[in-house]
């Protein structure tokens, strides 16, 4: 957290960096305005996103794969579903390979993050990023942008985990361990259990959860500000 984040809105930072930044995929991303926080949630486009990483530390660990698809209002489109492997700069730790199933030989034939990132930034332009526990996606992306383009990433973010915490709070229910896991949360909304673990199916899983959470809101009107964690 830098002081700038407290002093300026992300819209102001977008404008500032756009003027300062040399041409790059990140600058192209900033050229497109962020979705308006006052918009009805159905007017907003979202990018449901998930990574597989070698660990949880954005400074030490690396992104191994990226999966995403778009949601236009209340409809998720598989036409845009994308899954990309990235080549890490280090050897994949054994314990993480157990979770994501990505082995060294597969990863070594993948493209580098520098090659993959422009695709993701193009997909994110003009959309709100959507993920379950979005902190990971947001910070890994921002860290990668700083390393590759010299500037951090900012954008609108909707976090299905944060939305679920609000549901628990509004119902004054205590949160038990595991309650907020993606699979358990989905289960409460009657969503199917996906056996596989990969970035794309988890991104879709988060997207479906988001649609279920919004459909279950009691409020008459929901705007993006009601859903977003970073705005």
């Amino acid at each position: 957290m830098t002081i700038w984040q407290h002093l300026f809105s992300i819209e102001e930072r977008r404008n500032w960096w756009m003027r300062k930044m040399p041409p790059s995929p990140l600058r192209d991303y900033y050229e497109v305005p962020f979705p308006d926080v006052e918009s009805d949630w159905r007017q907003v486009d979202y990018l449901a996103l998930d990574y597989e990483t070698t660990g949880l530390d954005e400074h030490k660990d690396e992104i191994l794969s990226i999966g995403y698809t778009t949601i236009n209002g209340s409809c998720m489109r598989l036409a845009d579903a994308t899954h990309m492997l990235t080549r890490p700069r280090c050897v994949i730790p054994g314990e993480s390979a157990v979770v994501h199933g990505i082995m060294d030989d597969v990863a070594s034939s993948a493209e580098t993050l520098e090659e993959v990132l422009p695709h993701l930034l193009r997909a994110l332009a003009g959309k709100a990023m959507l993920a379950h526990y979005a902190t990971i996606e947001y910070h890994f992306l921002s860290n990668a942008c700083k390393r590759i383009y010299g500037f951090p990433f900012v954008g609108r973010v909707v976090d299905t985990l944060a939305l679920e915490v609000r549901v628990f709070r509004s119902q004054e229910k205590p949160i038990q361990q595991g309650d907020l896991r993606l699979a358990n949360t989905r289960n409460r909304y009657g969503l199917p259990r996906y056996r596989a673990h990969n970035a794309l199916i988890d991104a879709i899983a988060a997207g479906e959860l988001f649609l279920a959470q919004v459909a279950n809101r009691q409020e008459k009107r929901t705007i993006l500000k009601d859903l977003a964690v970073v705005s």
Partner: peptide, 8 residues
């Protein structure tokens, strides 16, 4: 599969 739209 690409033709599918998912709704809740």
């Amino acid at each position: 599969l690409g033709d599918i739209e998912i709704r809740y």
